[in-house]
Lab assay of single mutants.
Amino acid sequence: VLKALERTRQLDIPDEKTMPVLMKLLEEAGGNWSYIKLDNYTALVDAIYSVED
C-alpha cells in the first residue's frame, strides 16, 4: 500500500482519492497485487483518473 501511495503522491494525487480506488481494484483483483503493480501502478493511476472524469 505504501508504494502505491508513494507513486500517486508523485503525481499530486491525495491519499483520500487513492485509497478508495485502490481498495476497489484490490477487491476486483481478488487481492492480487500483480495487476495493480504493473508498469509502476499504471492501472491504479488510470483508475483514479477515470473516476475523476
Score class of each variant (00 low, 15 high):
21 V>Q: 04
44 L>Y: 02
19 M>E: 03
29 A>M: 13
52 E>T: 13
34 S>W: 15
34 S>G: 13
10 Q>M: 13
9 R>L: 05
31 G>V: 05
19 M>S: 03
9 R>N: 04
18 T>A: 15
26 L>Y: 03
13 I>N: 02
24 K>L: 08
36 I>K: 00
21 V>Y: 04
39 D>M: 08
8 T>C: 14
8 T>F: 06
42 T>Q: 15
33 W>F: 06
3 K>T: 09
22 L>S: 00
27 E>G: 09
39 D>R: 07
49 Y>F: 13
2 L>E: 15
8 T>S: 04
32 N>F: 05
1 V>P: 05
49 Y>I: 11
15 D>A: 03
30 G>D: 11
25 L>K: 02
30 G>C: 11
11 L>Y: 06
5 L>E: 03
9 R>G: 05
32 N>M: 06
35 Y>A: 13
37 K>R: 12
11 L>C: 09
48 I>C: 01
7 R>F: 12
15 D>K: 02
43 A>G: 07
19 M>K: 04
31 G>K: 05
20 P>V: 12
24 K>V: 07
11 L>T: 01
46 D>G: 08
11 L>N: 03
9 R>T: 04
30 G>T: 04
30 G>K: 12
52 E>W: 14
22 L>R: 00
39 D>Q: 08
51 V>D: 12
7 R>D: 04
8 T>M: 13
12 D>F: 12
31 G>Q: 07
3 K>A: 15
51 V>T: 14
11 L>K: 03
29 A>K: 10
43 A>H: 09
16 E>N: 11
52 E>Q: 13
29 A>Q: 13
10 Q>K: 10
49 Y>C: 11
23 M>Y: 09
26 L>M: 05
7 R>C: 09
23 M>E: 09
38 L>N: 11
48 I>R: 01
42 T>A: 15
38 L>E: 14
9 R>D: 02
26 L>C: 04
16 E>H: 13
31 G>H: 09
45 V>D: 00
42 T>R: 15
5 L>H: 03
28 E>T: 09
10 Q>Y: 09
23 M>H: 08
6 E>W: 06
45 V>G: 00
15 D>P: 04
4 A>E: 07
40 N>I: 04
53 D>G: 13
15 D>W: 07
24 K>A: 10
23 M>F: 09
33 W>E: 03
28 E>Y: 08
34 S>P: 06
39 D>V: 05
19 M>Q: 04
49 Y>H: 12
48 I>Q: 00
18 T>K: 02
4 A>F: 05
3 K>S: 11
6 E>T: 09
12 D>V: 06
23 M>K: 13
20 P>S: 10
37 K>L: 15
32 N>T: 05
37 K>D: 10
37 K>W: 13
25 L>I: 07
49 Y>T: 10
2 L>V: 11
3 K>C: 14
7 R>N: 03
35 Y>R: 10
47 A>Y: 06
22 L>Y: 01
18 T>R: 02
6 E>N: 07
36 I>V: 08
22 L>T: 00
51 V>H: 11
29 A>S: 15
22 L>C: 01
47 A>G: 06
13 I>E: 02
31 G>L: 06
28 E>N: 09
33 W>G: 02
12 D>A: 13
9 R>Q: 05
49 Y>A: 11
34 S>I: 09
22 L>Q: 00
38 L>G: 09
35 Y>K: 13
11 L>H: 07
7 R>K: 07
6 E>D: 06
2 L>K: 14
17 K>G: 02
36 I>C: 01
21 V>G: 01
27 E>Q: 11
20 P>Y: 11
28 E>H: 08
41 Y>P: 00
12 D>L: 14
11 L>D: 03
10 Q>V: 08
26 L>S: 00
48 I>Y: 03
16 E>G: 08
34 S>E: 15
15 D>N: 03
